[in-house]
């Protein structure tokens, strides 16, 4: 994959509550340009919420978010989201549009590209994920793995500076996981800045540059994968690893 015009993402002291449920309790995360940070942790620890706060699908109660050292909290959140691509566990493709329309829609409506140019660019992106031949199919006729790769193409078409993956392979049948992980690995190696929430410990260990372990709304441990997986310092991470490995 080609180089990306990726950026550095930093979250500082993020707090968020849903009512009385204090879900994020002062999270710090630093993802240098071109690196991949994986976020692991038990269910309910706030991983998905952290991603949503970092692209302002949810506004933080406290804290700051920086993209390339500039705080983005005062910008229009729609503008910020155009710079951050996001891939979801449930794919969330638009079922009433064709595969190629899924990818070209934001290009023509948001980037204001002429229709034929957006279409051509969408086909190019589909080609990169190996699905150009499905351009005119409906998402409902694709396998889960194919749908997720279309979702990745849809996000990449916007030329984001950062990509978020929220358990992108958790809804896939086991035999389809490999293809999506391979694509994510390619992106990572290609220099995309990525934050990957995952239960795939293999990916976290072998592909990411840093691993962040969250529990109860705080970062319990963070560091290079070798350090976290071979010498976990805290009992919480030890317990978690022994449960999942």
């Amino acid at each position: 994959m080609s180089e990306f015009s990726s950026g550095t993402l930093t979250a500082k002291n993020i707090h968020l509550s849903f009512g009385s449920n204090h879900v994020l309790r002062g999270i710090d995360l630093h993802v240098p340009k071109g690196t991949t940070a994986s976020v692991i942790g038990p269910s309910g620890s706030g991983k998905s919420t952290l991603l949503r706060v970092m692209n302002r699908l949810i506004e933080p109660d406290q804290g700051d978010i920086f993209l390339d050292d500039r705080s983005v909290l005062k910008d229009n959140p729609d503008e910020l989201r155009r710079r951050i691509g996001m891939v979801f566990q449930q794919f969330n493709l638009f079922p009433h549009k064709t595969v190629v329309q899924n990818v070209s829609l934001a290009l023509s409506k948001i980037r204001k590209m002429p229709k034929d140019q957006a279409h051509a660019k969408a086909l190019e992106q589909l080609d990169l994920v190996g699905l150009k031949h499905k351009a005119d199919a409906r998402p409902g006729n694709l396998s889960g793995g194919q749908q997720q790769r279309v979702a990745i193409a849809r996000a990449l078409a916007m030329e984001p500076e950062v990509m978020f993956f929220d358990e992108a392979t958790s809804a896939l049948d086991p035999e389809l996981v490999k293809g999506v992980l391979a694509l994510m690995t390619d992106l990572s190696k290609g220099g995309m800045t990525m934050v990957v929430v995952t239960h795939e410990m293999g990916f976290s260990r072998n592909v990411s540059d840093t691993v962040t372990f969250m529990d109860g709304g705080v970062v319990v441990e963070t560091g290079p994968p070798d350090q976290l997986f071979t010498e976990p310092k805290t009992d919480r991470l030890k317990g978690f690893l022994s449960d999942v490995l």
Binding site: E79, I84, N92, A151
Partner: peptide, 10 residues
């Protein structure tokens, strides 16, 4: 669906 659209920047 709304979330994915908004994540794209709509």
């Amino acid at each position: 669906q709304l979330e994915a659209s908004r994540a794209l920047g709509f």
